[in-house]
């Protein structure tokens, strides 16, 4: 149908910067976990937060989500919202039992 020549081509430099950021975040999360042992629940939260930042970076830059039409982001949002709802309802069940 439509031609595909207008697709965005991500530069090597952008991929490399993404990679660098991901590696830094990885060492940060290991550092927090190994040396920040007293944080307890807070350390779970930081670990999940860093993982989410990393996942977003992978999706956004490596997987081109940044350059895709809005529909892809909307679909992704629906998927994540559903999953969040599953987590919330199961948590409610287990917390109030």
């Amino acid at each position: 149908m439509e031609n595909n020549k207008h697709e965005h081509i991500t530069s090597y430099k952008e991929h490399f910067s993404t990679w660098l950021a991901l590696i830094l975040l990885t060492f940060m999360t290991v550092f927090v976990s190994v040396f920040g042992a007293d944080l307890r629940t807070l350390s779970v939260a930081t670990a999940m937060l860093i993982a989410t930042i990393k996942a977003t970076a992978v999706a956004y830059y490596f997987m081109h989500l940044k350059y895709e039409p809005k529909i892809y982001k909307a679909m992704m949002a629906v998927v994540l919202a559903l999953f969040a709802f599953f987590m919330i309802m199961i948590t409610i069940d287990y917390l109030t039992r």
Binding site: T29, S33, L39, S43, A47, I50, A51, K54, A55
Partner: peptide
């Protein structure tokens, strides 16, 4: 595959 691992790693290795 990478994305899944990003979550598996802290959930199994980095519990403190």
């Amino acid at each position: 595959v990478d994305l899944i691992w990003i979550y598996l790693f802290p959930l199994f290795y980095l519990i403190h």
